[in-house]
Amino acid sequence: DAPDEFRDPLMDTLMTDPVRLPSGTIMDRSIILRHLLNSPTDPFNRQTLTESMLEPVPELKEQIQAWMR
């Protein structure tokens, strides 16, 4: 099983494109984008959230890719 820090906190699946929300939570980009289609909010604190506020986490993405090899 993947380490917890590699798993999306909402869907508990392996992240492939991790992004940091303004709240500091790291999620998979595809999952948070799907959530934003229904509700333009951070799913953990209900603060306003837009796609432009998502910050890529390239170092975590590299760690996940290395773990998958």
Rank of each mutant, 00 (worst) to 15 (best):
R20C: 07
L54D: 01
E55I: 15
K61A: 10
P56Y: 08
I64M: 04
S52C: 10
M11A: 13
S39R: 07
L54F: 06
E55G: 05
P18K: 02
P18Y: 03
M53C: 06
H35D: 00
S23G: 09
L49N: 00
L33V: 11
P58E: 09
L36K: 00
M68E: 09
P43E: 00
P9D: 05
S23Y: 04
T50K: 11
T25Y: 15
Q63W: 09
R46F: 15
Q47N: 11
K61N: 06
L10V: 09
T13E: 08
R69Q: 14
R34H: 10
S39G: 07
R69G: 11
T25P: 07
F44H: 03
P56Q: 08
D17L: 04
R20K: 10
I31D: 01
E51T: 09
M68Q: 10
T50L: 10
L49S: 00
L14M: 09
D8H: 04
R29I: 06
N38S: 14
G24K: 05
W67P: 00
V57H: 07
D28F: 11
R34A: 14
I32W: 03
L10T: 09
T25N: 11
Q65T: 10
A66C: 11
W67F: 09
R69I: 12
D12C: 15
Q63I: 11
M27F: 06
D12I: 07
D12Y: 15
T50E: 10
R34K: 13
R34V: 09
T48F: 15
A66W: 09
S39A: 08
L33G: 04
L36V: 05
R69A: 14
A2V: 15
D8L: 04
E59N: 09
R69M: 13
M68D: 07
P9H: 06
R29H: 06
P18M: 02
I26T: 05
M11R: 08
T50F: 12
M27I: 07
D4V: 15
A66Y: 10
L54C: 05
H35S: 06
E5C: 15
T16K: 12
Q65R: 12
A66H: 11
I26A: 01
L36P: 00
I31E: 05
E5L: 12
D12H: 15
D1Q: 14
E55Q: 13
D42A: 02
P43F: 03
R20L: 08
E55Y: 08
M15A: 00
P9I: 07
N45D: 09
S39F: 10
P40C: 10
P43T: 01
T48Q: 12
H35P: 00
R29D: 01
Q63H: 08
R29M: 07
R29V: 06
P3D: 03
M53A: 07
M11Q: 10
I31T: 12
S39W: 09
V19Q: 03
D8Y: 03
D12Q: 14
I64D: 02
E5F: 12
G24W: 04
T41W: 15
N45C: 08
A2R: 05
D4P: 15
D17Y: 06
E5H: 15
M27D: 01
T16H: 11
R7S: 04
T50I: 10
L37I: 12
A2Y: 15
L60M: 08
M68S: 08
K61S: 08
M15S: 01
A2C: 15
P56H: 07
Q63R: 15
P18S: 00
T48V: 13
P9N: 05
S52K: 11
I32T: 00
T16G: 07
W67R: 04
Q63N: 08
P9E: 04
R7D: 03
Q65S: 10
M15L: 05
P43C: 05
T50S: 12
L60I: 06
S23E: 01
E51Y: 10
L14G: 00
S23C: 07
M15N: 02
R46C: 15
W67T: 03
E5Q: 12
D17I: 05
F44D: 02
P22F: 04
L37A: 14
F44R: 02
M68I: 14
E51F: 09
T13L: 08
R46E: 12
R69H: 13
I26Q: 01
M68Y: 12
T13R: 07
L49C: 06
N45T: 15
I64T: 01
R20T: 03
I31L: 06
K61R: 13
P3H: 05
P43V: 03
R46V: 06
D42W: 05
G24V: 03
S30Y: 12
S23T: 07
D1A: 13
D12E: 09
F44T: 05
T50R: 09
S52E: 14
R69F: 11
F44E: 01
E55K: 11
N38F: 14
V19K: 01
L33H: 06
S52F: 11
H35V: 08
Q65W: 15
P3N: 05
M11G: 09
T48G: 11
T13D: 05
I64A: 00
S39M: 08
E59Q: 11
P40V: 07
E51D: 08
E59R: 10
T48S: 13
L49R: 00
D28T: 02
E51L: 12
H35M: 12
N45R: 06
I31F: 05
R46T: 09
L10Q: 05
L21G: 00
P3K: 06
P56A: 11
P18A: 01
R29Y: 08
M15F: 01
R46I: 06
M27L: 06
F6N: 01
L60D: 00
R69S: 13
R7E: 02
A66S: 11
M11N: 11
S23P: 00
S52R: 10
L33F: 06
T16R: 13
D8Q: 02
T25R: 15
L10C: 12
I31K: 03
R69P: 07
L49Y: 02
P18G: 02
E62G: 09
G24F: 04
P18R: 02
T41N: 08
F6D: 02
T41K: 08
L54H: 00
D12F: 15
T25Q: 12
S52L: 10
E5T: 11
L49D: 01
Q47H: 10
R69V: 12
N45S: 14
Q63Y: 08
L21R: 01
M15I: 08
D42K: 01
M53I: 05
R46M: 14
D17A: 15
M11C: 15
Q65V: 12
Q63S: 10
L37V: 11
L54I: 07
M53S: 06
L33E: 08
L37S: 12
M27H: 04
F44P: 00
R69Y: 12
M11S: 14
P22G: 02
T13F: 07
F44G: 02
L10W: 11
E55S: 10
P9F: 06
A2G: 07
P56S: 11
I26K: 01
R46D: 14
H35R: 06
P43W: 05
D1H: 14
S30L: 12
D12M: 14
T16L: 14
P3M: 05
D1N: 14
M27K: 00
T48D: 12
L33I: 11
V57W: 07
E62L: 13
P43D: 01
Q47E: 13
T50D: 13
T16P: 04
I26P: 00
T50N: 12
I26H: 03
P9Y: 06
M11K: 09
D28C: 08
L10H: 05
S39T: 11
R69T: 12
V19E: 01
P3C: 08
I64V: 07
P56F: 08
R29F: 08
D1R: 14
E62C: 12
I32F: 03
S30N: 11
L14D: 02
D17T: 04
L14A: 03
V57M: 15
K61L: 13
A2L: 13
T25M: 15
L33R: 08
D42N: 06
A66K: 13
P43M: 03
P43I: 02
V57L: 13
P40H: 12
M15K: 02
L49F: 04
N45A: 06
P3W: 05
T48R: 14
D42Q: 01
P56K: 06
I26W: 04
Q65A: 13
S23Q: 03
R29T: 04
Q63V: 10
M68V: 12
E59C: 10
D28I: 09
V19W: 06
A66R: 14
E5K: 13
D17N: 08
A2H: 08
M27S: 02
P9W: 07
F6K: 02
P9S: 07
K61Q: 11
M53T: 04
L36N: 00
L54E: 01
D42C: 07
A2T: 12
E62I: 11
S52A: 14
E51H: 09
L36W: 03
E5I: 13
L14S: 03
T13M: 08
I64E: 01
P3F: 05
D12T: 09
D4M: 15
R46L: 14
V19I: 06
S30H: 13
F44C: 06
W67Q: 03
L21Y: 00
E55N: 08
R20S: 05
P56C: 08
I26L: 04
L14R: 03
L21K: 00
A2N: 05
D17K: 00
I26E: 01
M68A: 10
L33W: 05
N45H: 07
F44V: 05
L14P: 06
P3E: 03
Q65K: 11
N38I: 14
R20P: 01
F6H: 03
V19H: 04
L49T: 04
Q65I: 14
G24C: 07
E55H: 09
P58V: 09
E62W: 12
R34W: 12
V19N: 01
V19M: 10
H35T: 03
M53L: 08
D28K: 01
P40F: 10
D4Y: 15
Q65D: 15
V57G: 03
Q65E: 15
R34E: 10
